[in-house]
């Protein structure tokens, strides 16, 4: 009885997972198929699975445009902005989670409001501001902008995580004469890694793929990959194959980073002990 019930539960799990994985991965599979289709074009009658694959689209993406400078821009901007948003995010989250001060709730709300405003409302004022500062078309500008707009999520996510961690050992450490900074490093950080890995991942994906600010604030020197890719959207239709190839190539860095942090994501949990 118990065994057959366990089996049926497993079957249900397997079914849910299979359906989900097909739905989730098929479009990616199709993206790869589209990129591998020779310039015959993906919109053809008949069986869409039958075609002779070629790397033409990848070649034309890599040879047609020198994507390297855009790639380097994206990489530097993405990594630095992610690092900064994480670094300052951890500090702020600790401040918000472990101190009770006047205006704390207001600060939390204000931080969230930055995330709530549609970016389109920011673009023009920010453009005017950066122009006055003579900072347009520099990687630094995008780094600052991304850091600022990634911080709200980082802070909120990390604040709630820190609050989940039992306070007792921190209080003990404080009584032992450690200052708050030491407590943060020694006691809080070890429990925070998984959440930080998740935030880092989500932040770098957001920074890596951001389009609107990158489009408006750059013109030549600081252009990032997503902006360069849309050049494959011609004025007379879409170069389906090439844009798919470009999208796959662009995704390489986030995929590598995901591989890198993936181990961190689910590690070290459960050792917060019982509250």
């Amino acid at each position: 009885m118990n065994r057959s019930r366990r089996l049926s539960t497993k079957l249900i799990y397997a079914f849910i997972l299979t359906v989900f994985l097909v739905w989730s991965l098929f479009p990616l599979f199709w993206l790869a198929i589209t990129a591998l289709r020779p310039n015959l074009g993906p919109l053809q009658m008949g069986n869409p699975f039958v075609f002779s694959p070629s790397l033409d689209n990848f070649c034309s993406v890599l040879s047609g445009k020198n994507l390297l400078p855009y790639f380097l821009n994206s990489l530097i901007i993405g990594l630095v902005a992610t690092f900064l948003s994480l670094f300052f995010g951890v500090l702020a989250a600790y401040g918000l989670a472990r101190f009770n001060f006047r205006g704390r709730r207001l600060a939390l709300q204000w931080i969230l409001s930055i995330r709530l405003l549609p970016p389109i409302g920011f673009v023009v004022p920010l453009f005017i501001m950066f122009k006055a500062l003579n900072m347009l078309d520099t990687p630094a500008t995008l780094i600052i902008v991304y850091t600022a707009f990634l911080l709200p999520f980082s802070i909120w996510m990390l604040t709630t995580t820190i609050q989940e961690i039992p306070k007792e050992s921190e209080e003990a450490a404080l009584l032992d004469g450690n200052n708050h900074f030491q407590v943060l490093i020694k006691i809080v950080l070890p429990s925070l890694w998984p959440a930080m890995a998740a935030v880092a991942l989500l932040n770098i994906v957001a920074a890596w793929n951001e389009f609107l600010f990158a489009l408006v604030f750059t013109s030549k020197k600081a252009v990032t990959l997503p902006v360069a890719i849309t050049a494959f959207l011609g004025d007379r239709g879409v170069y389906w194959g090439e844009i798919s190839a470009a999208a796959l190539l662009t995704a390489i860095v986030p995929v590598l980073l995901l591989l890198l942090v993936h181990k961190q994501l689910y590690r070290g949990f459960g050792h917060w002990g019982v509250k």
Binding site: V124, L215, V216, S219, D235
Partner: peptide, 21 residues
């Protein structure tokens, strides 16, 4: 090079604020 809608967004902000990119 940029796509068509992007061109107008770029030129719009550029001209409105006197940019010289």
């Amino acid at each position: 090079t940029v796509s068509m809608p992007d061109l107008y967004a770029k030129l719009g902000t550029e001209f409105a604020t006197g940019g010289n990119s």
